[in-house]
Nucleic acid binder design. Structure first.
Lengths: 136, 136
DNA sequence: AATTATCCTATAGTTTTAGTAGATTATTAA
DNA sequence: TTAATAATCTACTAAAACTATAGGATAATT
């Protein structure tokens, strides 16, 4: 299941991308437009800023804005920041690899075999979609 | 993330499929071979039996065994029983559909748009793999 | 100086996950 | 018929993750 954090983050990013201007948008406006709890959204936008997706401006007329062109924001990077690993098991993860402690040989593991395919198919989707592609 | 339940369930099914005989295999044997907590595996095998994947026999010489040919067990059905919906959001789920309460129009939702593609790509993988394909 | 809006830390409630404990029932074999 | 074996079932618990919420600190603008 996709976490609410990721869901809300994606919605916020899409909203900012649809605005299509570099003027800051207040958290309250995004929250209201997307039906999101404002305080929760606050922390999500913060992580998006810390990870180089958003810029922010304090004080009157402040808010959040996209730093890059939506065309240059691939879903792979957004997903990894908000949701974490794209792979469903650590042993097939490219960016968050970890060995399973119960598995003696990954190459003979049925779960590994299946989840490798699932990861690749998901990666292809995320690589083929930028933030710009999500705007309707 | 894939739950341990699904992971262990897949491993147990694969083990039973690799045995390739209809004679019952005891929980303890599967647990030991796959490094799984026996008690936890117990409840997993029970759900697999209740959902028509396994048969069981009590008493001495008892255990669990596959009911169907591994070739006739698609990963779609295994995943749905063990992990639940294949879709990452209910609003794109085929078998577990639910409307999002925060979303006024699914067709204009960026999350919906993206997750629809992810679901389809995952479905393709699961449809192309039967239990027989997981045996190495 | 007053206002506005982000920034930051801490915490709390809920749900899910992963695993345990123990009694019960069915089967086999002696 | 009895004892041993092994699945079945119910209930419970500990830990982790998720989804927020509270409240004030900080910075920029007017």
């Amino acid at each position: 299941m996709l976490s609410k954090k990721t869901k809300y983050g994606l919605k916020a990013l899409t909203y900012l991308a649809s605005i299509d201007s570099k003027t800051p948008v207040q958290i309250a406006e995004i929250a209201k437009h997307e039906n999101i709890s404002q305080k929760f959204l606050e922390s999500i936008l913060l992580t998006l800023r810390r990870n180089g997706f958003l810029g922010s401006k304090k004080g009157k007329g402040g808010g959040y804005y996209l730093i890059k062109d939506p065309k240059d924001i691939p879903m792979t990077s957004v997903m990894r920041v908000l949701e974490g690993p794209i792979a469903m098991v650590p042993c097939v993860s490219l960016n968050f690899y970890e060995k399973c402690d119960d598995c003696p040989d990954e190459n003979k593991c049925s779960v590994n075999k299946l989840m490798l395919q699932v990861r690749d198919s998901a990666l292809e989707v995320y690589r083929n979609n930028t933030l710009a592609d999500l705007i309707s």
